[in-house]
Design a protein around this nucleic acid. Structure first.
Lengths: 355, 355
DNA sequence: TTGAAAGCGATACCAC
DNA sequence: GTGGTATCGCTTTCAA
C-alpha cells in the first residue's frame, strides 16, 4: 500500500528505472508497458514518485520561500502585500512552483532564522524585511537565488523596486505648490523601536529601513527645493503599518499647538488612519488638512486619498520571473518600475496663506 | 564554498556523523569540538544540513500544503479565508512548519493535480474544495495526514466544521418571526457551473457543494417549519464568492415583478454585494429589504449586517493542531465549533404584513 | 527499449 | 563521546 518505486518495479517485473521513466519520461518506453506500470501503481495505491526524494535527486523543489516580517497574518492584512503576493503567485503558478510562507516571528529572531535554514525551496523572495534583520545573512548563506521585492541592498542582487524618493518628491512638490508650509510625516520603521510616537529625524539618512528612508528623502528634497526648512517638518513613527497606528500617530501631530496643514503618510494604510483621525476631530481632509498616502491600494480610491500609485501586482509578478527564470544579462535583473502621483480630494490648498 | 556535510567533516578531520551531531544533537559531542565544527562551517560558507536531504532521511519536511480552489489570490481576497489562514499559520508556526500554498488553478485540473502530487509537505489542509474535484483522490493517494477545513466527506477524516444547517436555521427562524414570506437566497456553487444567474433548486440536497448545500438546507428547514413553501423561495447562483457577484445576483432578484422582502446570502461577501445593490436602488436594508449574511467578517459589523458568526481564526488554528499534533482518540479528530446569530440593522420586520 | 549501478546529502543505529 | 555503515526513494548515465 503506497510503497516505493521498487514495489511497483517488482510487481510489474521491470527495473525501477523503467518505472521512473513511466512517470518522468513517457517517451522512453512503450505505451503498453507504461500503461501496465501506471495501472499496477494505481492498484497498489502508489501515488507516484516521492516528491522529497525526487527533489533531492533533481536538485529542484518546486517551491519558493517568501520571507517577510511580522506575523504571517500581516501578509493577509496589508492590501499592498496582498497585491504583491498575488503577482508573485501568478508567476509561481506559471513555473509550477508553490509559495512557501516563511514568517519571521517578530519576537523570535532565532525561529525566523531556523525557518530560513530549513526551508525546502529553490529560492527566496524577500520583502518588507529591514536590512538589519539577522535572517538576511542566513538566507544568503544558503546560496540560493534571491530576489528582493524592494531593493538590492547594494549587493547587485536581483530586485524589483521603484524610485521611492522620486515618487515622494513629486508628492512633496504638489503640496508645496498648494501652499503648505506646516507639514508632518508619518511612517513606520522611522526608528528601530516599534512604537507609535513623535520622533525627531535629523536627516532622512538616519532612518534605518530602506523604504521609509527613501520615501522620507523624497519629501525632504522636495521641501528643500521649495524653501521649507526640514526643522519645520514634524515626524511621527508608527508601530506598524496599520490604519490604527496611523490614526494614533496622527493624533500626536494634530493635537498640538501648531497642527500641520498637511499630513504625509508613507503608506496608504497609515494615511487611512490619518483620515480616521481627522474625521474623529471633525476636520475635513483636503480642506482643513491635506493628506497623502503611498501605494494606491484599492481602498484609497474610495476614500478619495491623494496618493502615489505603484504597480504592486506587477512588482510581485516580475519578482517571481526574476527568480524562476532569470534573464541572462545581469543588468536585467534589477528592475525599476514607474510610479504616478494620483491627486484626489484629500489634498487641497493650504487653509492658511502662510502659517 | 557551501559544500556538504562531508566537506566539513574532512576539513575538521572528523566523520560526518559528528558534523551531523554538531547540528542536530549538540549533546552528543563536546562543546569545544562542536564550536570548532561550526566555526569551520562558517568559514567555508556551509549553511547547515541540506533541508531536502534531511527531509528525505527524517521523513519530515516542516511544511503543510494548503489546498483551496480558485487562484491563489482568492486566499488573500476573501476575508473569511484570510482569517482561516491566519489561524492555520499560527498553529503551523507553533509546530515549526511553513505553509505551502497550492492553488487549484481553476481552468486547469491537471495542473492542480500535479501540484498536489509533487508537493513537498507533511500533510494537507483542504478547504473550499468542492467534493467532486479531481485533486481530492490524488491527495488521498498520497496517504499523508489530511484535515478538512469544513467537513470530512463522510470519510471519518480529521475536520473542523460547524453545524452549517443549524446556523442558517436560526437565521431563517429569525426572519420568519419578522414576518417575511417572500424570500430569496443567494449562494455560490449552488450549481456546478459558475455563472451568476437565477436558478431553481428543487431541494437543498441537489446542491453539489457541501457548505452551500447545508446552509441552504438550514434555511429550507426553518421555512418549512414556519409554513413558507419552498417553491416561494427564489434562489440565485453567484459566479464566485465576491461582493460584485453578490450585487449582480441581487439585481436579478430585486428587479422583478414580486421582489423579495428578504435576501439571504450564504456568505458575508455576497451579502455586502446585496447591500450595494439595495443602495444603488435607493432601498434601505432592514426597512425595505432585510439582508442576512454568513461568517461575520470584520466588514460585516461596520455595514450593520445581520449575520452568523463563526470562529474563523479558531477554525484554522484547530485545523492546524489536528494536522500537526493529532489527538490520540480518533473521536477527537472531528471538531464542530459553535456559531451565533448576530442581529444587526440589516434585518427588520417585513414591510408587508403579507405579500 | 530496458536494466544495472552510482550517487543526491543527510541521519541513526550500534559498536568502539 | 566518536565513527562506520546502511538507508531514505529516486534519477540518470551508460551498456546491453
Amino acid at each position: 500500500m503506497g510503497g516505493t518505486l521498487q514495489t511497483i518495479a517488482d510487481a510489474v517485473g521491470v527495473s525501477r528505472s523503467t518505472v521512473s521513466n513511466a512517470y518522468s519520461r513517457p517517451d522512453q518506453l512503450s505505451p503498453e508497458l507504461r500503461e501496465r506500470i501506471l495501472e499496477t501503481a494505481r492498484r497498489l495505491g502508489y501515488s507516484g514518485p516521492n516528491p522529497t526524494a525526487r527533489s533531492l535527486r533533481r536538485g529542484r523543489v518546486g517551491a519558493i520561500g517568501v520571507l517577510f516580517t511580522a506575523t504571517m497574518s500581516y501578509a493577509f492584512t496589508d492590501p499592498y502585500a496582498v497585491q504583491f503576493l498575488r503577482g508573485l503567485s501568478e508567476a509561481a503558478e506559471r513555473h509550477d512552483s508553490g509559495l512557501l510562507l516563511l514568517p519571521l516571528s517578530p519576537g523570535d529572531d532565532e525561529a525566523g532564522m531556523n525557518a530560513v535554514r530549513n526551508a525546502v525551496v529553490d529560492g527566496f523572495c524577500i520583502y518588507c524585511v529591514p536590512e538589519w534583520h539577522r535572517s538576511l545573512p542566513v538566507i544568503r548563506a544558503r546560496r540560493l537565488p534571491i530576489v528582493s521585492g524592494e531593493h538590492d541592498g547594494g549587493r547587485n542582487a536581483a530586485c524589483v523596486g521603484i524610485d521611492e524618493a522620486a515618487a515622494t518628491r513629486a508628492a512633496g512638490e504638489h503640496l508645496a505648490r498648494l501652499g503648505h508650509r506646516r507639514i508632518a510625516v508619518i511612517g513606520d520603521w522611522l526608528t528601530v523601536d516599534r512604537q507609535t510616537r513623535p520622533v525627531t529625524i535629523a536627516a532622512p539618512g538616519d532612518v534605518p529601513y530602506y523604504v521609509s528612508r527613501e520615501r522620507l528623502r523624497g519629501y525632504h528634497d522636495a521641501f528643500a527645493a521649495a524653501g521649507i526648512a526640514w526643522t519645520d517638518v514634524s515626524t511621527a513613527n508608527a508601530a506598524d503599518n496599520s490604519r490604527e497606528a496611523g490614526a494614533t500617530a496622527a493624533a500626536y501631530l494634530l493635537d498640538c499647538a501648531h497642527p500641520p496643514t498637511a499630513v504625509l503618510a508613507l503608506t496608504d494604510l497609515l494615511a487611512l488612519g490619518v483620515l480616521d483621525a481627522l474625521a474623529a476631530r471633525g476636520l475635513r481632509a483636503g480642506h482643513d488638512v491635506s493628506v497623502v498616502g503611498f501605494d494606491d491600494i484599492p481602498e484609497a480610491g474610495a476614500a478619495g486619498l491623494t496618493t502615489i500609485r505603484q504597480p504592486a501586482i506587477e512588482r510581485g509578478r516580475i519578482a517571481g520571473g526574476l527568480l524562476l527564470d532569470p534573464p541572462a544579462d545581469p543588468a536585467d535583473r534589477q528592475v525599476v518600475l514607474p510610479t504616478e502621483l494620483i491627486v484626489r480630494a484629500s489634498t487641497g490648498p493650504s487653509p492658511t496663506g502662510r502659517t
